[in-house]
Design a protein around this nucleic acid. Structure first.
Lengths: 341, 341
DNA sequence: CTGTTAGCGCATTCAG
DNA sequence: CTGAATGCGCTAACAG
């Protein structure tokens, strides 16, 4: 199967007996041109259904007006929202977007960057994979002076702009809420410990505990690799602890949902036996029974801010100095944490 | 902010004192080349961190090895899965992907097509917006001989390949299941009537009824515009009907979830008063209480098949004659329909 | 085996 | 106001 022919400037030039440069000028509404010839050209272009070849144009001006986006997973509702925000606002400013997913693999992430760079994207928006534990590929982008920003899953040391949520703040909100609901032995179910969000959310958790004069207790910190299987293992461990906890804060909603589902199958009552809370406000959080207390992170907003800042830098509307944008989260209290004291 | 310099063939040619064509040949491993010079060039390219400029390459060979994808909504889990399948398998065959969302708007859909065509994508994969009720833009693609396939939200008359689910079959499965559970007055909650899936799923619904000797009853067919508000209106209407139905089949899961949520707030029992079923097997379907009976549509698989067929056509491995691929759905029976007879 | 030449489609000097 | 010439980075046909 092969593509049909596309009309070029050359052809419309021949048809009108003028030069290609005149066509070029007419189509970009250059002022130094006889209005009449301009009119004729524009008309003919429309009639012939001329579509500019962005490839040629980009090659010539060495700018593609295209941004590359790399996310760990498109099927995650949060990242899909980010993409949506990025795309809408990039389009609004005349930019296109190429999206890749790393599938949480650092090798794929590196490959994605390579492809996008080869495609000459003007800049990149990257959210790091879970696996990403070294950063040469990012430093290389930096040294090659290819503009990029990091969002949500960031690495703190790289001198580029970063857009994150106030993860510590959100975790503080949830933990504080659980404490207010009367919980005093609160488990934190963390993801892998080297993850940025695992650390940040733990910070907030500990800070809230400290305010209530409660010391960190290593038994109460559980690590899951975030697979369903491991989430269930943790759920089981918690319900079998000798000194029972009274509240559980899971680092992300899916963990909380897995825990809840397992507990329901075992007859464990939420919130009566354990108050439960998650993080992110996934669509599922609202519909489980009981509805899950969580913290909302507006992904669309994050995408919008990330792309707006990046384009401001590209267009010289903002300084190139890296900045850090921290978005606030909102506590979404639901039934899963409504312990009657 | 501006991008740094990228190494070109010219530069490495100068450095090695050979011509650009030799570089080009070496880098694509042409056989007619002295192994030693080839080795030198490859080495130097690596040392200088050469990255080919895909733009120039594409312009030259007039093929971008890029596919355009248009979906109504990236944030829908189903379409995100499709995208994931498309991307993985496109990459596997050396193609990149540019994704756009129409936000269910025909104008946006047309704009997306225009952008992707201007970007010289080799082909398109399109799932139509809800609003799309005329098809000139598709016929234009067709007449311009730009290869494309339609998936999931298709238009039947256009002579291109289409990948769909057996929507009628899936609706038949659900309705048949409800009948087996003892339901005899089953409501079908449809989306807007001109939607392809509204029609197809109605077909399956009616076929199952017919097999049980039950005639179509217009009172039992409700139309929602698929907003939460309208879904709630329908839910209310159903519970207030004088002759109460005993089962409800909603065209898509989100409608069923809205109905369920509303009914729960009103103390209506599912499945006791109404057996309930949806369609698509969204993540939410599994976690609502009671879990929702539905029909699974593997989106990843659909994306994979769509892109595989399209690339087969592009690469001449499949005939250009349009075909129709129909994927089967699977009934996922859950508690929401377990009426004890 | 390698260099020269031409050109993909377009934008932009430089001359008229 | 408009045309001719040049080149973005790369590939490919044609010579040698």
């Amino acid at each position: 199967m092969k593509k049909g022919h596309q009309v070029t400037m050359k052809e419309i030039a021949k048809k009108l007996g003028v030069s290609v440069s005149t066509i070029s000028r007419a189509l970009k509404d250059s002022p130094e041109l006889h209005p009449e010839t301009k009119r004729k050209i524009v008309e003919m272009a429309k009639e012939m259904n001329y579509q500019p070849n962005l490839l040629a144009q980009s090659l010539r001006i060495s700018r593609t007006k295209t941004l590359g986006v790399i996310v760990p997973e498109i099927t995650s509702h949060f990242f899909a929202s980010c993409i949506s925000g990025i795309q809408d606002h990039a389009n609004k400013r005349g930019y296109n977007v190429m999206i890749c997913q790393s599938n949480e693999s650092i090798d794929q992430e590196i490959a994605n960057i390579k492809t996008l760079v080869a495609s000459q994207v003007d800049a990149l928006l990257i959210s790091l994979s879970r696996e990403t534990n070294h950063y040469e590929h990012l430093y290389e982008l930096y040294s090659r002076e290819i503009p990029f920003v990091l969002f949500d899953r960031v690495q703190e040391d790289i001198p580029v702009s970063k857009i994150t949520f106030n993860d510590a703040g959100g975790a503080y909100q949830v933990t504080h809420h659980l404490l207010e609901m009367g919980c005093r032995r609160i488990v934190y179910v963390s993801g892998p410990e080297d993850l940025y969000i695992s650390k940040k959310r733990k910070e907030g958790y500990l800070k809230a505990l400290a305010e209530y004069g409660i010391a960190e207790e290593s038994d109460l910190i559980k690590i899951s690799d975030l697979t369903e299987q491991d989430n269930v293992r943790v759920a089981k461990e918690i319900m079998e602890m000798k000194t029972k906890p009274d509240g559980v804060f899971c680092m992300i909603d899916p963990v909380a949902v897995d825990v809840l589902t397992y507990w329901k199958s075992k007859g464990v009552k939420v919130p009566e036996e354990f108050a439960l809370a998650g993080f992110t406000n996934n669509p599922t959080a609202a519909v489980v029974e009981p509805p899950l207390t969580t913290v909302s992170q507006p992904g669309y907003e994050m995408g919008k801010l990330a792309v707006s800042h990046l384009l401001d830098q590209l267009d010289g509307l903002a300084s190139d100095d890296p900045i850090s944008i921290v978005l606030d989260t909102t506590l979404v209290p639901r039934k899963s944490s409504q312990k009657t004291i």
